[in-house]
């Protein structure tokens, strides 16, 4: 073993090294993902059930003005709901790797350690993209219509960006709680109020007055409203910028937070 010179000559690493590490880690997580197709299936069935349930069961009793069909109102909401629900998987994945010692191995390697987290959040964002595509297709099958395909693509882009931001929230969360079961149970706590106290399934106007200031301005509502505007061809206005601003603000806080926790072990 000692006969061959070690890689010690490159103690500090440059940019291309980071790309290499991120690609390796993303590949590893995607390989794992596709070897457990049941996870993808369940992760997709759940939002599809939400689309069907809200459209056919609650749709008739939800009051809102405007001349759009409920399904056109609902699909943007479900896309964002998927973004947040799926983000919990990042916490589960990270805690699983922690517990099985995979993270220890990666931390003992002369790699860019942040690549472990980027690879994880990348793979989870790709998975969310897949789920969102399927939901959009199901939406079209049961009556969702838009004349603005560019707006739809941009809207899904907003949902993916928000999903990516929340992946980092849950990466940090997973690194702090460390236990997969705790991660699974805890991940939904912040997600539920954000998804339901929002314009996701019903207009905020129907909610009590004290809740409206929060419900009107939080990341889920502004993103859902922006996607609705984009798919219906109305100007998204401040919602578009607020949504992008929220995502970047979340990334700005949680990337350093998760990285620091990862480095400390």
């Amino acid at each position: 073993m000692t006969a061959v010179a070690p890689n010690a000559s490159t103690p500090t690493r440059s940019g291309p090294g980071l790309v290499n590490d991120v690609v390796a880690m993303t590949r590893r997580n995607l390989l794992r993902l596709f070897r457990t197709p049941q996870v993808i299936v369940f992760a997709t069935i759940q939002p599809v059930i939400f689309v069907l349930l809200f459209n056919f069961v609650f749709g008739g009793s939800i009051q809102f003005d405007g001349d759009v069909e409920y399904i056109d109102f609902l699909v943007p909401g479900i896309l964002v709901q998927t973004a947040l629900f799926a983000a919990g998987n990042t916490a589960i994945g990270i805690t699983d790797d922690l517990q099985k010692g995979a993270i220890d191995r990666f931390r003992s390697l002369p790699m860019h350690h942040i690549a472990v987290l980027i690879g994880r959040t990348n793979a989870d964002a790709l998975r969310a993209t897949l789920t969102m595509t399927i939901i959009t297709v199901v939406g079209f099958i049961i009556g969702f219509r838009t004349d603005h395909y560019g707006g739809l693509v941009l809207g899904i882009g907003l949902a993916i960006l928000l999903a990516y931001a929340f992946n980092w929230v849950f990466a940090a969360f997973g690194l702090y709680v460390r236990d997969p079961e705790a991660a699974q149970a805890g991940a939904f706590l912040p997600v539920f109020p954000l998804v339901f106290a929002a314009s996701t399934f019903a207009p905020v106007d129907n909610m009590p007055g004290w809740l409206q200031p929060f419900a009107n301005n939080q990341p889920v509502t502004v993103t859902v409203n922006a996607i609705r505007a984009l798919t219906q061809g109305t100007p998204p206005g401040r919602d578009l910028w607020l949504s992008i601003g929220y995502s970047f603000a979340i990334l700005l806080i949680f990337i350093p937070l998760a990285s620091r926790k990862f480095a400390k072990g």
């Binding site: 500090t12 995979a102 191995r105 790699m111």
Partner: peptide
């Protein structure tokens, strides 16, 4: 210089940190 140390060492652990799904 932790990264230089990391490139000198090989670590095998009691938890057998290998990936089940690969």
């Amino acid at each position: 210089n932790p990264n230089a140390v990391r490139s000198m060492i090989g670590l095998a652990g009691q938890y057998a940190a290998v990936d089940d799904l690969l």
